[in-house]
């Protein structure tokens, strides 16, 4: 295996007496699309945030492209990592174009209109959207802008924390597929946190299941569907499988 782009070495995060992450070791290979799946409170979101230091581990270290993130200045680190999250967080006082250009702007770089247009095209939005304000957009359009903003600074790593959780199913499906395509075209490494096993199985090429701060399963989607990964993982896989079976029955 080549050098991993992201490594967790003995990472723990404690809040008082609760351990959100419990002595976790993990390597993530460059170019992979990894899904972190688990119930609420399993520690998946906390683990993701230790990468761009929105959360600092209590002990252990996180290496990004070989460097310990604890030794990097937060703003510079975060500008190198794309971040998409459930509440989207578009700046309501900035236009779509200004929102997209914010990362480079922080590094005193101006994005030309052509680059904005390109980023909008990546997320299947019209160029004319550039001048709109966020409150003029639908929820799906907003998260598309959120993805474009995350990609504006040409990051190697894209972190997504429940990115499609608040979207309607149709938009959710379309944007999921779009992001997977961008991942492939741009040669990104993507880590996506989700509680939806179906989404993880359909988009990722490696699925990690977390429970009580530990990784309890680490499988490719096909292996999970074949029954591997243990009890907790299989309980999560059972939900979409059961739904699919019910739907198949109904259609007969």
């Amino acid at each position: 295996m080549p050098d991993p782009i992201l490594s967790f070495r003995g990472v723990s995060k404690a809040y008082g007496t609760t351990r959100a992450i419990d002595t976790l070791d993990l390597d993530i290979e460059a170019g992979s699309f990894v899904a972190l799946v688990g119930a609420s409170g399993s520690g998946k979101s906390t683990l993701l945030k230790t990468v761009n230091r929105l959360v600092e581990p209590t002990i252990g270290e996180v290496l990004f492209e070989g460097e310990n993130v604890a030794g990097l200045p937060q703003p510079a680190l975060r500008r190198r990592i794309g971040y998409v999250f459930q509440s989207i967080g578009l700046f309501p006082h900035m236009s779509v174009a200004e929102n997209i250009a914010i990362g480079p702007r922080l590094g005193a770089e101006r994005l030309p209109a052509s680059r904005i247009a390109e980023l909008l095209a990546w997320v299947e939005l019209e160029e004319s959207m550039a001048d709109r304000m966020p409150d003029e957009l639908s929820g799906g359009q907003r998260q598309r802008v959120g993805v474009a903003r995350a990609l504006a600074a040409e990051p190697h790593l894209l972190l997504m924390d429940e990115p499609f959780g608040a979207l309607d199913p149709v938009t959710r499906d379309a944007l999921g597929e779009r992001v997977r395509k961008l991942h492939d075209e741009l040669g990104l490494t993507t880590v996506m946190v989700t509680h939806d096993m179906a989404e993880a199985l359909l988009l990722a090429d490696r699925v990690l299941v977390m429970d009580a701060g530990r990784i309890v399963a680490d499988e490719v989607p096909a292996a999970l569907l074949a029954g591997n990964g243990g009890e907790i993982a299989q309980a999560l896989v059972a939900v979409p499988r059961h739904q699919a079976e019910r739907l198949a029955e109904l259609s007969q």
């Binding site: 929105l54 975060r78 971040y83 999250f85 509440s87 967080g89 578009l90 914010i102």
Partner: peptide, 10 residues
């Protein structure tokens, strides 16, 4: 969400 985004974009 806006504050998280401000931190997240660096």
């Amino acid at each position: 969400g806006v504050i998280e985004a401000a931190e997240g974009v660096g």
